[in-house]
């Protein structure tokens, strides 16, 4: 696909995302869109390191959870403004990510070993967040006070009692903005020296080294960027739900959600995580609406579906849905525009 086709595609996608909720007017559908964009951002955080850099993390919950906890605890314990807390959250997560990256890459952990160590760190933080009650409030989690004063809505980063527009759309446009920023960064990265070197590391680390790339530094840079993006998801989550507990923060489900979207959508592409997230949430919602009733609302159906989609994509679409879309596009444009 040419750069121009890509840009027009993005214009259409972003305009749709910007305007769609205004026409939906339904709290349920706006919630659905919010969660879709949330996972799209979470997935981009994974995609930077996993898709572009080839380092598959199985523990991105470590980054999400650390961000969420810093955001929650700074407000809960010290009454710090959420707008200030978020910078500490991002910085804190980058520090944690850099530490894990430094240790893993310094000791040359690749492939399965890198996956295992990220998993181990997430598990360690899960245990710590449950047991260090004096710091984290333990297993019962942190509940933030609900602001009921409309005048304080923006100052408290809470839109539940805000004026008419913010109340309805505040969180949607928050996650939409986060998506815009993180996807713009990824778009820029893809077209930069750093991005080219990161992909080179993924494709062949020895060749990258021979061509003068400091592969350690490049991987470390990628994990820091990945951390910052994932941290923003933690911040968003806490502001939206005003609650965080160890299982949500550091349990395996966020780690898994983070890798589903980019793998299904298309690894190492800007649009992949968004496409993947829209697809799995769309399929999940469609299932609920059609056969959900017949199944009696039992839990597990959507994850059975997502797991199956994951396996099928791995088996038949090595480049994910993006690869499929590009193949179709090539067909339609008569193979002129590869």
């Amino acid at each position: 696909m040419s750069e121009r086709a890509r840009l027009s595609g993005w214009t259409i996608i972003l305009l749709t995302l910007a305007l769609l909720p205004l026409y939906l007017h339904s709290a349920r559908w706006i919630d659905f869109l919010e969660m879709t964009l949330f996972v799209a951002v979470l997935g981009q955080g994974w995609n930077i390191l996993g898709g572009y850099g080839g380092q598959y993390s199985f523990g991105n919950a470590l980054l999400f959870g650390t961000g969420a906890y810093i955001q929650a605890l700074l407000q809960f314990k010290f009454g710090i403004s959420p707008w200030i807390a978020m910078w500490f959250a991002i910085a804190g997560v980058v520090a944690v990510g850099a530490m894990v990256g430094f240790l893993s890459f310094r000791y040359g952990l690749r492939g399965s070993y890198f996956a295992l160590i990220t998993l181990a760190f997430a598990e360690a933080f899960l245990v710590l967040s449950r047991s260090l009650k004096s710091i984290t409030e333990g297993g019962s989690g942190v509940q933030l006070a609900l602001n009921q004063d409309p005048a304080q809505a923006i100052a408290t980063f809470q839109f539940n009692f805000a004026g008419p527009f913010l109340k309805e759309y505040g969180f949607y446009y928050t996650i939409f903005t986060i998506l815009l920023v993180t996807y713009a960064i990824t778009w820029w990265m893809e077209r930069s020296r750093f991005g080219a070197q990161l992909v080179a590391v993924r494709e062949n680390e020895d060749a990258a080294l021979a061509l003068g790339i400091n592969t350690f530094k490049v991987k470390l840079g990628a994990i820091c960027l990945s951390s910052a993006i994932t941290a923003s998801c933690g911040v968003y989550y806490v502001q939206k739900f005003l609650f965080i507990e160890p299982g949500i923060a550091f349990g395996p489900s966020k780690s898994v959600e983070a890798l589903f979207a980019p793998i299904i959508g298309g690894l190492g592409t800007v649009v992949g995580p968004l496409l993947g997230s829209v697809f799995i949430h769309g399929v999940g919602e469609a299932t609920k609406m059609t056969i959900g009733q017949a199944l009696g609302g039992r839990p597990g159906v959507d994850l059975i579906l997502f797991g199956t989609i994951l396996i099928l994509v791995l088996a038949f679409l090595p480049r994910g849905l993006v690869g499929l879309v590009e193949a179709v596009w090539k067909r339609l444009s008569g193979g002129r525009d590869a």
Binding site: A200, N204, A207, A210, G212
Partner: peptide, 11 residues
């Protein structure tokens, strides 16, 4: 700079 006998392209 060196090249590799067993080539290592970014495939």
């Amino acid at each position: 700079v060196r090249t590799f006998q067993v080539v290592k392209p970014f495939a």
